[in-house]
Amino acid sequence: MTVYVTGDIHGGLDMQKLRDWELGDSLGSDDYLIIAGDFGFPWDFSAEECADIAWMESRPYTVLFVDGNHERFDHWAERPMEPWHGGLTQRLSDTSSIRRLMRGEVFELDGKTVFI
């Protein structure tokens, strides 16, 4: 298991850095990418945004994020909380693999402890 951390995707504004991330193609299902603030999805559910979300969900690794100040908090206020790896999360949608890691929670990722 490997954990990579980046930040400030701002929805589609900075997605290209993930698409250009060559190492990302070599990661597997036990690896994680944590976006530390300003994930920015969803924003307007445009066709382009939905394509970006589908691309992230198709990655072999798991995309996690911690909220920043550029989030659509009204969307997240309506999403249910779910326990995951010892802490509470929210999924982007009921079927999404993308998870919001809730602040103040502690997660166990393959023997490593992560405090959000």
Rank of each mutant, 00 (worst) to 15 (best):
T62N: 09
R72G: 07
G40R: 07
L88V: 01
E108D: 11
R100D: 13
F65N: 12
S96Y: 09
F45P: 11
L27F: 03
S97I: 04
G68R: 03
V3H: 03
P83L: 07
Q16T: 08
D44Y: 07
V114F: 15
P42Q: 02
M15I: 07
G12D: 01
S46T: 14
V5C: 05
S58D: 09
R100A: 10
A51Y: 01
S29M: 05
P42H: 02
V106F: 00
G111K: 10
W55Q: 08
L13M: 11
W43N: 14
C50P: 03
T62L: 07
G86C: 06
Y32A: 05
G40L: 01
G40D: 10
A54K: 09
C50F: 06
G7T: 01
G28D: 10
H75Y: 13
W84P: 13
L64I: 15
S97A: 12
T113H: 07
F45I: 04
D20T: 08
A36V: 02
F41E: 10
D74R: 12
K112W: 13
E48S: 15
Y32S: 06
W84I: 03
A36H: 09
F73M: 14
T6S: 12
G7D: 00
A51M: 06
R100W: 13
T2H: 12
H75Q: 02
A47E: 10
D20L: 12
F107D: 10
D20Y: 03
T89R: 00
D67E: 13
E57V: 05
D31Q: 03
G7R: 03
A77N: 14
V3P: 02
L23E: 15
G68A: 10
T95S: 15
F107Y: 15
W55E: 11
D52H: 15
H70G: 03
I34M: 00
P80K: 00
R91D: 08
I34S: 02
P60I: 04
S58F: 06
K17M: 15
H85S: 14
L13C: 04
I116F: 05
A36S: 09
I53A: 08
G11I: 02
E22L: 07
P42T: 01
S29E: 14
V66Y: 13
D38A: 04
R99S: 06
E48D: 15
E71C: 04
D52W: 09
G24M: 07
D74M: 13
F73Q: 11
S29A: 11
S93E: 13
L109Q: 08
R103H: 13
A77G: 10
M81K: 14
E105I: 04
A47S: 11
F45Q: 14
